[in-house]
């Protein structure tokens, strides 16, 4: 089974003007094949850096990152990335954006059309094939971005706060879209978010990061039944997980934001 991600003692530093800044320090985590794992932490803790490293965008300074025992040296379509800002190509139509991957691999054009159509249908975007991304709403753009990645049939899906730019209703809708997709395809997913509710709802396991420079603070196995539906949010067990995570994150956010001001 493919898509087994292992991050071991990962540290990434950037050299500033006259000092070295550690974005993350000593991060170890694992996404087993077909698992849905979330990484939560306060903003600036280096969550995205971890994703960028697994994607192959940023090399580790120390430690190692492997997928199926292979160290990562560069980006690859086996590991699809979904960005918070969508990063669709504005010079390509919805169809062309989704077809980008297979076209890069010189797949037969007829096969590309069939498979793009299939993803357009799956995402409810059939009518928008010839639109440009700038003409779509945020939720639709993120569905295009998902389709653009899924069409390559990756082993691992790396999602970097994918719904951070969406309004609350669209966000909940998209969470269910992703959950349904995951339940039918069972890819390994690493999902970065700062939304605790989202992390508990989606994940098999949640890693909480410390404030910058980020390392892993604690791990929670989310033992809720699958398939999950929206109403699970009112379940007693769900709320207990939320409470635990909330307390862990609050400790970290206070390190960053300081104590509450008194009036």
């Amino acid at each position: 089974m493919a898509g087994h991600v292992v991050v071991k003692n990962l540290g990434i530093s950037f050299t500033g003007k006259d000092k070295t800044i550690w974005a993350v320090k000593d991060v170890s985590l694992e996404v087993k094949s077909r698992e849905f794992v979330s990484l939560v932490g306060v903003s600036g803790c280096g969550k995205s850096t971890v994703i960028n490293s697994i994607a192959g965008f940023v090399p580790p300074t120390v430690g190692e990152v492997t997928v199926d025992n292979q160290p990562i040296t560069e980006p690859n379509s086996r590991r699809g990335v979904v960005f918070q800002s969508f990063v669709l190509f504005p010079w390509k139509t919805v169809f062309e954006n989704i077809a980008f991957g297979p076209r890069s691999r010189d797949v037969d054009e007829k096969a590309i059309t069939e498979s793009v159509d299939q993803y357009l249908k799956l995402m409810g975007l059939m009518k928008f094939a010839d639109h440009y991304p700038q003409q779509l709403s945020g939720g639709m753009r993120q569905r295009v971005a998902l389709a653009r990645v899924l069409i390559n049939d990756p082993d691992v899906l790396l999602m970097d706060e994918p719904f951070g730019a969406l309004d609350a209703q669209t966000r909940i809708f998209m969470q269910e879209v992703v959950l349904n997709l995951w339940e039918s395809t069972h890819k390994s997913v690493l999902f970065v978010t700062h939304d605790i509710d989202e992390a508990v709802f989606l994940s098999d396991r949640v890693y909480v990061m410390t404030a910058a420079p980020g390392s892993i603070k604690s791990v929670y196995d989310i033992e809720l039944e699958r398939p999950r539906h929206a109403d699970i949010r009112l379940d007693q067990k769900f709320l207990l997980y939320k409470k635990e995570l909330y307390e862990a994150i609050r400790e970290e956010s206070q390190k960053v934001l300081g104590p509450l001001p008194t009036f």
């Binding site: 960028n52 965008f57 560069e74 980006p75 379509s77 699809g80 990335v81 190509f89 980008f100 390559n152």
Partner: peptide
């Protein structure tokens, strides 16, 4: 980054 991770 997006293009590279789609496989260009």
């Amino acid at each position: 980054w997006a293009a590279r991770s789609i496989g260009i």
